[in-house]
Design a protein around this nucleic acid. Sequence first.
DNA 1: TCATAACTGAAAACGGTTTCCATTTTCTCT
DNA 2: AGAGAAAATGGAAACCGTTTTCAGTTATGA
Lengths: 157, 157
Amino acid sequence: MIRTKLESRLVGARKNLPKGAKAVLEALQKAPGMLSARDLSFRMKLSHHTKEEQSKSPGLTTIYRSLELLTRQGLVQAVSFGDQEKRYEVVEPGCHNHHLVCKSCKKSIKLRECLLASLEETIKRDYGFSVSEHLLELFGTCQSCELGTNLDNTDRR
Amino acid sequence: MIRTKLESRLVGARKNLPKGAKAVLEALQKAPGMLSARDLSFRMKLSHHTKEEQSKSPGLTTIYRSLELLTRQGLVQAVSFGDQEKRYEVVEPGCHNHHLVCKSCKKSIKLRECLLASLEETIKRDYGFSVSEHLLELFGTCQSCELGTNLDNTDRR
DNA sequence: TCATAACTGAAAACGGTTTCCATTTTCTCT
DNA sequence: AGAGAAAATGGAAACCGTTTTCAGTTATGA
Ligand SMILES: [Zn+2]
Ligand SMILES: [Zn+2]
Ligand SMILES: [Zn+2]
Ligand SMILES: [Zn+2]
């Protein structure tokens, strides 16, 4: 098959991922929400069955390195809540998400769109500042927690 | 002088601050921008002259405790940029700021108003989620860096 | 095949923050 | 003022997420 260099680079992006990174990406895809590096490590171990298999799941170092790689490639997003721990989630390649994080049940809801896209224009005009990245996360109480109808208090971020 | 309990509590807020916290608040007020706890510690030491005096400036532990106290009282805001280190700045009591952080010169510009205040209503409607706090910081390039007219590259956050 | 580069992981280092605990300062009541 | 209780303080150690180091392993490609 004949491809242009650009095509190869794009198509190859996923293929050429090192084994560890591929495993991390898969695990993240299966995960219900955001995961910290350590959470991820646990989950990857658990997803195997025998002790022997578990020991083959990548070490923390590789997980961190893979997350960094995947983030650079735009396949994964690091989410920061202002605490020490970063969480990671898969994203539409090149896109990003923001979240509503319930302080009561700890679940997080993805915003359907970036609230800032439109504002960056305004900021350029008002401040002469060109925004290239931003950090936006919202905290509060989700509907079911507010109504007291939330029985599921699993800390599943 | 006769005061209601509430009045006393409010007026007293600053007065009743422990010595260390008062010192931290003062240092923070004098500072040109946001400071990390460690930066703050340095600055407080430097602001004294003799060795003896310097040793009287509060230790890091007290600084952290004071920042926590001042934050609880709404006099200081902890700013998070998604890295490990928190920065602190004084705010109008009970208010908060967001910033435009230049990735080139590292200076930060305070936004004149919170961009989200109006959006929280929309979010309540669209997601049934009551926002009580939020994290919003913007990164990019400031005007002078973009124009290349910024000679002052001091890393003064 | 051999050489080179890429990848991996355990242990150690790191850096910001928090905890522990013994001491000092401040407050309260007499 | 003085005794006793409560609050504040600071150095050292612990903590915890993350990064670095380095020695060993695996893929790549002439
Ligand atoms: Zn909830
Ligand atoms: Zn966005
Ligand atoms: Zn700049
Ligand atoms: Zn705001």
